[in-house]
Design a protein around this nucleic acid. Structure first.
Lengths: 201, 201
DNA sequence: TATTGTTATACTCTATAACTATA
DNA sequence: TATAGTTATAGAGTATAACAATA
């Protein structure tokens, strides 16, 4: 573990072991190793610790909380997303919705089947194109979304539990900036309204 | 989207749409909706924006970068973890390693097969228990790890690309604190040396 | 009888491709 | 011919369970 002492121009690195950890991309599980920073000497600010590990743990915890919060929603997180998007942006065609959410169109079919069965959305024929179907939230869907959003807000707050108000603000701001850049460098889905990015930087 | 105006005692919420997004837990892909904050009025600090979305985007980007960096390592991120752990902590028994890394023991078998085939680690019989096998990194494994760590450091730095030095420090500190709490509330694997947490709080 | 590690099997979720009905 | 949506199939990756060797 001493191999980095030269190429990192190590101020603090030489005093501790920075133990990087990576993550599987296929299962969403954070299969990280143990907590990363082992202080060898007296020095070393601990924030040099592994970003990936922390990122993974936090993300995983949020994902778990969110999944629990959305337990009874057909399709789980994805069902929520469909609900949230159609309610926020109005009726959408199935394929557009799929593209926007990064969901495969074949998956979208099953997802909508379940959501429709649960009475949260409805498929309406698109008057402009008889091939297409417009996805419309129902009244129940709207009510459900409200509830879900409250639950998710709780999950968020729970994850940030040991930060005080000011720290949360700072953290969210910095995270948001990093995220916006990441998203613009390598966009997930649609570009939508990234135009507003500037005000976040 | 007006349903939260009362129960959130909304200062800023009433002025914008906070559009929460959740994530699938099974594929590690961030199937989020579009960027979240749409300013309706003039006010609203943008940091109120969706935590989950940002978290997911950043994590996903890091995971992608890390996966690319570990492209040629058998087992990818997991292979790296095995390497890093055995090198940092010395030879370990297969099952202990699996438990520590949160990898299923059946998966560990295949993973070690591949790592051994690549000449990065070796299985030695445990003199203390003839059932068990000790996983030992090879010289090649050690060299490889050095290289991989440099690559991962680059990935990290890339992800935090638009933060300056000071901001990175703040971000990492806060993230680390959130992560340590998340990990202690709901530990992934072993408890190891969480004793050192205090200095991070 | 319990445990280490291996192998075989089943299951989940995803990705590919073929099909229908419209355009 | 191309596109919206559906269905069927195959694939990757994981988890479960049964197994051999040892404790």
């Amino acid at each position: 573990m001493s191999c980095h002492e030269d190429n990192l121009s190590s101020r603090t690195y030489s005093r501790q072991i920075v133990f990087r950890v990576a993550y599987t991309t296929y299962d969403g599980e954070v299969t990280s190793s143990s907590p990363e920073v082992r202080h060898r000497g007296a020095a070393g600010t601990s924030v040099e610790a592994d970003l990936g590990w922390a990122l993974g743990v936090v993300f995983k915890r949020y994902a778990k909380q969110a999944a629990a919060a959305l337990d009874d929603v057909p399709g789980g997180p994805r069902g929520y997303q469909v609900l949230a998007t159609t309610i926020a942006e109005g009726p959408k065609r199935q394929l557009d919705l799929a593209a926007q959410l990064g969901i495969d169109r074949t998956v979208m079919t099953y997802l909508l089947d379940d959501l429709e069965k649960a009475g949260l959305v409805q498929r309406h024929p698109d008057p402009a194109d008889r091939r297409a179907r417009l996805i419309d939230p129902t009244e129940l869907g709207r009510k459900t979304l409200c509830d879900l959003e409250a639950r998710l807000a709780e999950a968020e707050s729970d994850v940030l539990g040991n930060l005080d108000e000011g720290e949360r603000l700072v953290f969210r701001t910095l995270l948001q900036r990093v995220a916006l850049r990441a998203n613009s460098v390598d966009p997930l889905h649609n570009a939508c309204d990234v135009a507003e990015d500037e005000e976040l930087l």
